[in-house]
Each structure stands twice: as structure tokens, then as C-alpha cells.
Amino acid sequence: MSKANIYAIENPVTHQPGWIGSRVQEGSENTASPYATVGNIAVPNPRMSARSVNVFYDEKQAINNVSLDIGLNEVISMIGPSGCGKSTFLRCLNRMNDTIDICRVEGEITLQDENIYSKSMDAVLLRARVGMVFQKPNPFPKSIYDNIAYGPKIHGLARSRSELNEIVETSLAKAGLWDEVKDRLTKPGTGLSGGQQQRLCIARAIAVSPEVILMDEPCSALDPIATARVEELIDELRQNYTIAIVTHSMQQAARVSQRTAYFHLGNLVEVGETNDIFTNPKHPLTEAYITGRFG
């Protein structure tokens, strides 16, 4: 028995899995089969849908048979310890992993019933439909205006200057940044504060009208106030966009998402309503992670 019980003195026999005071360890008998995901992976109206996805870096398997639906206009958060594959999975959803030579993806991921890994799906087009916001705010070293206008420009979304201006304004407005930057659109985007930069990056993603927005730990470089504003923004964006967010902050997952998926060592251990995951997770690994008894 690799687990201890703080009540062992009182009664060493009647403890159950996920016991307070017991830390779940790798390979303990509590670990369920790595291939079975607890909870319902499917939703009635999926926007994106992954089935039996395996990801390899050379010979090393980073994602192990993950199936998961991302529902229309929902925020789904992916949590788990470092190296659990949540970011890798997120990056499969817009084929960002294509840029890594040694990365190989198996299985099927569909966007509106189109397989995004099929030959007919172009990665550039896919990334226009599935936008991405990164961990560190990474505005282009250009003006605020150019940051937003870049995407629409290369995709030819605006036919005239005035149309482009409109896209820039609405994108910034949707990101809640318009009032803050409307007087300095020609100033460099990198001159904004960290939180503003991240909202600028969100506005940049919105500008190409994506169907899904992926966020890879979008607040990990921000202070709590800026984090709160970004979280508020994510909640507002849910009306029009489907959002998948990877986060290290369980509180953030609890605050912004409707569904939560817990990843562990490349496996999708549990997925379910955020309410359930954070009050009463079913899988002992999830419980251990959420209550801070993991390591």
C-alpha cells in the first residue's frame, strides 16, 4: 500500500480511494485503466470533435487515445499537471503541431464534420477558422492597428480601407479594448500593458472571424486584475465563439468554463460539467489533482 491515511490510528481498514490525506501515486491500484475516460465525452451539438487521437513526438507518445467533443458556444477548459498533454491536444485542434517535424498525429479530429487532418483541409484555412491565443502575450512588433488588420489583410477579408477599419474597430470592441486604445492605434502594440496585450491578441484572433478560439494558458503571464478582465472577456465571447482553454489555474477553469477535461500523462482521465468536476470528481486522479494531493 503506497498510501497513508491520517486516520490510520483510528481505523486502518475502512478507507476508500481518494481518501483525504492520501496522495494518489503513479501505478497505485487506484489508477483506473488509462484508456477509459470517466464522464461523457460527447455533446449534442459538437463544434469540434476528436476521436481516438494519438500524438507522438518521434517514438514518445504524448497523447493517448483521446476522444473529446467541443460543443457549440461553450467554454471547455483542459486542466492537468505539466506534461499531461493538454497543450499538445489543444495544438492538434488547429494543427499547430504541424510546425514540429517530429510530431505525428493519429486519429480523427473534425471541425463541423470536416476532418481537419484530411488532405482537402488546408492548415492555413483551418487556422483562420480555429484561432489561437498563446501563453505569453505576443503582439507583432507593429502598431495596434496593424496587429488586428494583419489577419484580415492576408486573408483578403476586407475589400476596402473602410471595411478594414471597421473590422479593426469591432474586433477591438469585442475584446473590450477599443476605448482604451482608440486614440493610439498607430502606437506599437508591444507598448500596451500585459493584460492589454493579451486582449489585443484575442482581438487579433477575433478579427479573422474564427469559429473556435483556442487559448493556451492565456493568463499565466498576467496579474490578477488583468486575469479577471480576460476571464470576463472569455465569458462574454462565449455568446459568439466556441472556446477551448488550457489553464494551470483550477480556479480559472472553474470560473470560465462550462465543461472541464482533466488530462493525466497523455490520457483524458475525466471530462464533465465544470460544476461536477470541481465539487465531486469521479476519478481518483482528478480528485487528487483538484484537491492538491498530486505529485
Binding site: 492555413v124 484561432g131 505576443n138 507583432f140 494583419y150 487579433r204
Partner: peptide
């Protein structure tokens, strides 16, 4: 991060490199 930002909004490889 700059490359990712460009790829993330749907720039092609060549656009990412040259822009």
C-alpha cells in the same frame, strides 16, 4: 512566439517568414 502568432492567425509559412 512571433512565428506562432503569425501562424495562429492563419499566415502561411512564407508569409510568416517574410512578414
Amino acid at each position: 512566439s512571433i512565428r506562432e502568432a503569425a501562424l495562429g492567425v492563419g499566415a502561411s509559412k512564407v508569409q510568416t517568414v517574410f512578414h
